[in-house]
Amino acid sequence: MYIEYFLLVDRIVALSIEEGVVRCEATVPTESTIYQGHFPGFPVLPGVLLIEAMAQNAGWLILAMTRCERFPFLSIINEAKLRNFVRPGNVLLVESKLIHEGSGYIKTENRVLFENAVMCEATTTFRVLPFPSPVFQEKLIAHALKIGFPAEFAPHGR
């Protein structure tokens, strides 16, 4: 996780459009200014960042589904449950599964695991739109390929 750059998953470990599933690894940083306030003497990754991590995770699946032609903007978060404290150094597995696609939106169920225990879960719905900027698209695809995004789902010639 690079919290300062808002990059919250580190590596795509599995992605299948056929199964509608993506899994990513994310290591919680051991040092961050966030822990100065959250909380002094008891550092915990904020739940809002876990929800964003789940959204980013699902985003890689949706980008693959659209061959990186459209970007998923987070629109709805349902049934978010923060079950356990996530601590510095935890190596997390983030999982997302497609549950519905239609009307220009995609809905996924997501969860975060640490040592096989569910730390949190949420259902997320994304509005899927053409990239609003070619620079954004270019930079995102470059980052995607660095973290294990399958090249077959990137536009040709990347």
Binding site: S75, I76, H100, G102, S103, Y105, K107, T125
Partner: peptide
């Protein structure tokens, strides 16, 4: 949107 998804299903 939730209604639309339920109708789809």
């Amino acid at each position: 949107l939730d209604i639309a998804f339920a109708i789809d299903k």
